[in-house]
């Protein structure tokens, strides 16, 4: 891969889209088949936020497929970022916040990799990441914005942003470069075989991300019929022609949360936090061996999480429907 310009040329962006098969076609496949759509060196955008609706099943498949040099972007990065670093699948994460979650303290794995310069955590403000995806989704090269000025966050990425005087008002504004990921991984509650996706609860940055990316892999709790989608088209958030793969992956965010279905697997996440804090090298390696490389299949991975944990997370997950 050569060095690409920061912002993709409009003709390249349009050409890539033009050459994609946008017909109403079935695209159901396995996690392993979908992993083949991701190439070493790709920019991969990860849907969800922190421990919510993270496409863990696809992250799991990419780590098992031993991908290399992926550039990862996400609104906020949690345990999946640790595991991308620890597995050497990625050495470059673009995000606004990087740690398992505030209740577990600062990630020792993120610290180990960044402080020892083994990997890069490129920090942008949360809104700036969102506006970069949005510019990408809109097919424009940049988005003007009013944050990251005056602070050192803006200075850290000064080669990638522009500060200009607004041509209308003369005010100082920031221009954020559009982000058009090579591929976006998004987990939803339901979609059809064509990739019409309905997602419940918080959307995070997933819709912009799907529109901005050059490819989308959807994992879904269940595949429903196209007829069912057509009964409630107002609930469809991602249109099929942006989607390149549909994978049915029940509990596809475990041990993270999927709105309305299961909450985070807190005991499991406590366990991960404990072993990764005790040893930021051996801890995640042990975790990867046990939960990523070891299991024969996704159901085998879920079995390792344990029936008690699945039921407990599900019971809590469904509580939002019980007000």
């Amino acid at each position: 891969m050569g060095i690409e310009p920061l912002v993709k040329s409009y003709s390249a962006l349009r050409h890539e889209t033009l050459t994609r098969d946008r017909g109403l076609r079935e695209k159901v496949m396995t996690l392993e088949e979908a992993a083949k759509l991701v190439h070493d060196g790709d920019h991969v955008a990860i849907g969800g936020c922190t421990v919510s609706r993270t496409p863990i099943a696809m992250v799991w498949a990419l780590i098992r497929a031993r991908k290399r040099d992926l550039v990862i972007s996400r609104s906020i990065t949690s345990t999946e970022g640790d595991l991308f670093f620890a597995s050497e699948v990625s050495k470059h994460v673009i995000t606004s916040w990087f740690t398992q979650g505030i209740v577990w303290g600062v990630s020792k794995v993120m610290r180990h990799h960044t402080e020892n310069k083994l990997a890069r955590f490129e920090e942008w403000s949360h809104m700036s990441i969102g506006l970069r995806y949005r510019a990408g989704a809109m097919g424009i090269p940049f988005m003007p914005s009013r944050t990251m000025l005056g602070s050192d966050v803006g200075k850290q990425v000064k080669d990638e942003i522009k500060v200009m005087d607004c041509p209308f008002t003369g005010e100082k504004i920031v221009l954020l470069p559009a982000l058009n990921p090579d591929i976006a991984l998004i987990h939803v509650q339901r979609c059809d075989a064509f990739g019409n996706a309905q997602l419940d609860g918080l959307q995070f940055m997933d819709i912009d991300m799907a529109m901005a990316a050059n490819k989308v892999i959807l994992t879904t709790e269940r595949i429903v019929s196209n007829d069912q989608i057509r009964r409630t088209p107002d609930r469809t958030r991602i249109p099929f022609f942006t989607v390149d793969a549909v994978v049915e992956a029940p509990f596809g965010c475990a041990p993270h949360e999927c709105y309305g279905l299961y909450e985070p697997f807190f005991t499991h996440l406590d366990h991960y936090a404990k072993i990764s804090s005790q040893d930021p090298v051996k801890g995640p390696q042990q975790y990867l061996e046990e939960f990523y490389y070891g299991p024969k299949s996704w159901p085998d991975y879920l079995a390792k999480l344990g029936m008690d944990a699945l039921l407990d997370a599900s019971r809590r997950g469904r509580s939002v429907h019980n007000d």
Binding site: C49, T50, I76, L202, F204, G260, V320
Partner: peptide, 22 residues
């Protein structure tokens, strides 16, 4: 545990994408 879980949405008036709430 963060501002991004379903617990944050209980009995709320509206949910928006992150970019729009910011």
């Amino acid at each position: 545990p963060s501002t991004n879980e379903q617990r944050c949405t209980r009995r709320s008036n509206m949910v928006l994408p992150i970019t729009d709430v910011l």
